[in-house]
Amino acid sequence: MFKPSWDLERNQLVERHTLTVLVDNEPGVLARVVGLFSARGFNIDSLTVSETEHDRHRSRITIVTVATPKVLLQIKLQLERLVPVHRVHDLTAEGKALERELALVKVAGKGENRVETLRLAEAFRANVVDASIDSFVFEITGRPNKVEQFISLMQPLGLVEVVRTGLTAISRGKEGM
């Protein structure tokens, strides 16, 4: 007591946090969450969403945000104010969570480049999911920095385009949300 959890006017450093939000999968719920972030000037680095419990119509939304501790607390409390939101957990604050992202990476090329592409893909455990005479599509899964690194290595070898799912995360251990 008597020690505020943060100190208002001091320059707080921003931190990157992963939040997981359990919501009722009803129409407009994603717009509510996203609208809250834009209306209050919060930042979204990455967002993934999908229904996870079909029988109960519940979805999990994973949001990566960058904010000061004060704003992170506000984000959590404001999210909890939304009527269809069950719970919000700050996975980063609660301990090391498992974080994964999937990317599909299209690379075109011939000759030595093509061989090098395959070698690197193997090293990164990226799977070939489509191939033609002069192109590959790789599927890579991992932490965002691994995906990032793979993409940057593909750049000089004929990178055509990339799609990424954004980050999804779950806590370690036996406890669920």
Binding site: F2, L8, L73, Q74, L77, E80, R81
Partner: peptide
């Protein structure tokens, strides 16, 4: 709860 510590840090 979101009103608390929004503008002013409070002790209790």
């Amino acid at each position: 709860p979101s009103s608390i510590n929004k503008n002013i840090a409070v002790d209790l």
